[in-house]
Computed example of a mutant assay.
Amino acid sequence: AKAKLRLLGVSKEEINYVRNVRRVNEFTTIYAPISGWIFQKNINQGSAFNPQKKLFQIINLDKVWLEAKLFQNELEGLKQLHNFNVKLKGLQKDFNATKSLLYPMLDPKVATATLRLDIDNSEGLLKPGMYAKVHASADSTSHLVIPRTAAMRKNGKWYAFISTEFKGEYEPVQIEVTPLDTSYFELISGLNEGDSVVNNALFMMDSDAQINGIY
């Protein structure tokens, strides 16, 4: 009987009182198993309940989840990303997050995967339902990189455009890259440190290259 009362959440003091006086109080106090906020209340004063009924939903917000949506082409470089910085509109403070879980299925409606990030919320600034922007980066190591916007993929191969000796002319160079973070590719081969590559407006140069049969 003592074990059953403990499982029901009856305090040790009240159990000892019942054992000593051989009498049950008309009222008893049931303590919440955790501290937090009441998100659901399914009982009112005077209501009856049974062991199967959920009386309250209590949520502790000291640590919260953030679900980030990733497009399919962003999944390849996710393993290299370990640093996640979270910004929310209306809050001056940025938050650091840790990678927790990548859900195994994509949303078929929008073709996005869901990455769960854990964030410390001991100050209570983050609220359920908020929207945020996440910046992800790899660990601080030395890499030869180019901006993602400076690389173009065509027929399964990657190209970058470098300036020639003639002003306003550009030459496509085949390169080998691997995703580093959301903004940069790590350069494996095709360019050297210090080479000047063209950034942005690659769609115009791609059209010119096709017209002239450069690649």
Rank of each mutant, 00 (worst) to 15 (best):
N50W: 02
N50E: 03
P51T: 10
K53A: 12
K54S: 14
K54W: 02
F56I: 11
F56T: 08
Q57I: 01
I59M: 13
I59D: 04
I59V: 15
N60S: 13
N60L: 04
L61A: 12
D62S: 13
V64P: 13
V64A: 12
W65Y: 13
W65M: 05
L66K: 04
L66M: 09
L66E: 06
A68S: 08
L70T: 00
L70K: 00
E74K: 00
L75F: 06
L75E: 08
L75H: 05
K79P: 00
Q80P: 00
Q80T: 05
L81W: 06
K87C: 03
K87F: 06
K87W: 02
K89A: 11
L91E: 09
L91G: 07
Q92R: 09
Q92W: 07
D94Y: 08
D94H: 12
F95R: 10
N96T: 09
T98E: 15
T98P: 02
K99E: 13
L101R: 15
L101E: 12
L101N: 14
L102E: 08
Y103F: 14
P104S: 06
P104Y: 03
L106S: 15
L106G: 03
L106D: 07
D107F: 10
V110T: 15
V110C: 02
A111T: 08
A111K: 15
A111G: 01
A113E: 13
L117M: 09
L117T: 10
L117I: 12
L117C: 08
D118Y: 05
I119R: 07
I119D: 10
D120T: 14
D120F: 02
N121D: 04
N121L: 02
E123H: 07
G124D: 13
L125H: 10
L126W: 10
L126R: 11
K127F: 15
G129F: 05
G129N: 04
G129P: 06
M130E: 05
V134W: 05
H135G: 03
S137Q: 11
D139S: 14
S140P: 00
S142M: 10
S142Y: 08
H143V: 12
L144T: 15
V145W: 07
V145L: 14
P147F: 04
P147G: 04
R148F: 01
R148T: 04
T149E: 10
A151T: 03
A151F: 05
M152F: 11
M152R: 04
R153E: 15
K154H: 13
G156Y: 06
K157R: 00
K157H: 00
W158E: 08
W158L: 12
Y159R: 00
A160W: 00
F161D: 00
T164R: 03
E165V: 01
E165S: 14
F166A: 03
F166M: 05
K167A: 12
E169S: 07
E169P: 02
E169Y: 08
V173D: 00
Q174M: 00
